[in-house]
């Protein structure tokens, strides 16, 4: 049996009923991709999940997806576990309180297949709800306005990326060490992939929906730096990033 085109990963923990919209958006996006002729595997990664969250996932998604249990206790490591299990040529991630637009999987796959080289793909637009609703547009690393050096203080892309599964395997996520002031495993991962010369690109006409809760980790440590900050070669990053542009 040939491997699926895409493994769509959703990471769950203790979301319980609050992840229902997330799972439904995943189901819709996967169905749309299948309608477009793409083969999609859904992988539900349950990291130290509670029973209620397990039940909700099965209620919404049924038995079709693969359910993988992990005890990583960390979002970055849980993603790595999902990558280990993924059988798709490409993989993409969804967190338990965020949503995908229905075209995301299909469009990202088509863009990746049409590209002349491997890249990390991001949606064009993020609708961020919460206390301060706003719209955040991604800018790709090859855009002339992108400045790699500024990446040191500002993570330019969300964690909900799409890329060849082998990229996630070659460059695993570091653990999230936010409590120590060096969190944002995705920032670190984005940085490392950029340093290695893999471009980050935008899939036009696609959107994600981010729920920025007051208690969200994203807002809890404004000044945290990327995980593995000390081991990153920032000068090499600047050179690689600027060469990308």
């Amino acid at each position: 049996m040939s491997s699926p085109d895409v493994t769509a990963v959703v990471n769950l923990h203790h979301e319980r009923e609050s992840c229902v919209p997330t799972l439904r958006s995943l189901g819709v996006a996967a169905s749309f991709a299948v309608e477009q002729g793409h083969d999609v595997e859904i992988l539900v990664l349950l990291d130290n999940a509670d029973d209620r969250t397990r039940e909700v996932a099965r209620t919404v998604l049924g038995d079709q997806p693969r359910y993988v249990e992990s005890t990583a206790g960390d979002l970055g490591l849980a993603r790595n576990r999902a990558v280990d299990e993924a059988s798709g040529t490409y993989a993409c991630f969804l967190d338990g309180d965020d949503l995908w637009g229905f075209r995301w999987i299909a469009r990202a796959f088509e863009a990746a297949e049409a590209a002349e080289r491997d890249a990390i793909w991001h949606p064009a637009t993020n609708f961020v709800s919460g206390k301060m609703p706003h719209v955040y547009h991604h800018v790709g690393s090859e855009h002339r306005m992108f400045k790699a050096s500024r990446f040191r203080l500002h993570n330019g892309w969300t964690a909900l990326s799409f890329a060849r599964t082998s990229i996630y395997r070659d460059i695993p996520y570091p653990p999230n060490l936010l409590k120590s002031g060096f969190g944002y495993e995705d920032w670190s991962w984005n940085t490392e992939t950029l340093r290695r010369g893999i471009p980050h690109r935008v899939v036009e006409g696609t959107s994600h929906y981010i729920n920025k809760r007051e208690s969200s980790l994203l807002t809890s440590s404004v000044h945290a730096l990327p995980t593995r900050y000390h081991t990153l070669d920032w000068n090499a990053l600047s050179e690689a990033g600027d060469a990308n542009v």
Partner: peptide, 10 residues
């Protein structure tokens, strides 16, 4: 489409 699933997000 997202509005149908989760009005709060859209």
């Amino acid at each position: 489409a997202v509005g149908e699933i989760a009005p709060d997000y859209a």
